[in-house]
Amino acid sequence: MINQQSPFIKKAPSVTWIMMLVMLGLVPGTLACVFFFGIGILLNLTIAIITALIFEYFILKIRNLPIKLFITDGSAIVAASLLAISIPSIAPWWIIVIGTFFTIIVAKHLYGGLGSNLFNPAMIGYAVLLISFPAVMTKWPLPASHLLDFNLAQQIQIFVYGTKDVIDSVSSATPLDYIKTQILLNRPYEVNFTKGMPINSYFNASIIISLSFLIGGIFMWIKKIITWHLPITFLISLALISSIFWLVDSTRYLSPFIHLFSGGTLLCAFFIITDPVSGPTTPKGKIFFAFGVALLVYLIRVFGGYPEGIAFAVILMNICVPLIDSLTQPKVFGHE
C-alpha cells in the first residue's frame, strides 16, 4: 500500500473467515435436511459449489479482476450453498447449474460483483428456478429417515435423469403447498401430529430442520457475524402477523407456529435476509427491512400464487434498501 496512514494496527476477521463461519453455521441445518430428504441435498450442494466456482473463475477472468483474491473470498460458495439447500433433494443436476448461473453470473457479477449486488444472489437464482420450473421446484420427497434408508444409486439416478423417469411415488407436496391447495379448493385440512399422514411427517421434519438452522443462526450471532435485528424482527413480525389472521379466523388461516416452522422460515431469518451486501446497514433499517420481508412472506404464502414467498419477499425488499437506509440514518453524536 502506498501512503501508509493510520491506523497502523487492525484486528478484523477477513471476508473469507466470515464466509467460512457462515458455512459452519449452515452445517446443522444441512445435516438435518440430508437426514430427512436424502443424500440428494449433498449432491445438490457439491454440484452447486463446483459450478459456482467455475462460473466465478470465468467471469473474473472476463472482468479482468484478480482471480485468486476474489475466488478465495468464499462469497460464491456461500451463495451457491444457500441456493442448493433451497432446491428439492430430488431435483436433476441441470436445475442446479441453471440456478448457480443466475446466482453467480447474473445476480452477482452483472451487478458489479462482490459488494455491489443489489439483490440477494441465492434468492435470484431460486426465483428464476421457481418461475421457470415450478413442478420440479415444489416437489420434495417424503421426509423419512433417508440416512437409514440409504440408496445412493437411486439418488444419483434421480440426480442425473430427473424424477419423472425414475419414481413418482416418493414425492409429494410440501405442507404449505398442501394446505394452500386445500384452502383454495375450500376443502378442510388437518394438521395433526399424531396421525401418520404425509403432511405430518413433513411437518415434523420441518420442525427439526428449522431448529437445526436456529442452532446455526445462534452460532453466527455468538460469533458476531450477524446482529439480532434482522432474524428476531423477522420471526417476531411473522409470528405477530400470522397470529392476527389466525385469531380472526383459525379455520382459514394457519397458526403462527406452522408459519414459523415450515418452509424456509428459519433459514431465511438467519442466513438469507442477513446477507449484508443486499440488505440495509442501519440498525433501524434492519428492523424495517425484516418487518417488510415478514409481511411480504405472509402475504405471498397466504394470498399469493406461490406456496412459498421468501425469495420474492426478499427480492422485493432488496429494492427498498437504499430508501430504507437513507431514511433510517442513526443520529450522529451530538446532533439533535
Partner: peptide
Amino acid sequence: LPCIRCSKCA
C-alpha cells in the same frame, strides 16, 4: 476487497 456493507464500521 470491495466493501461488503457488513456495517461493522458503523
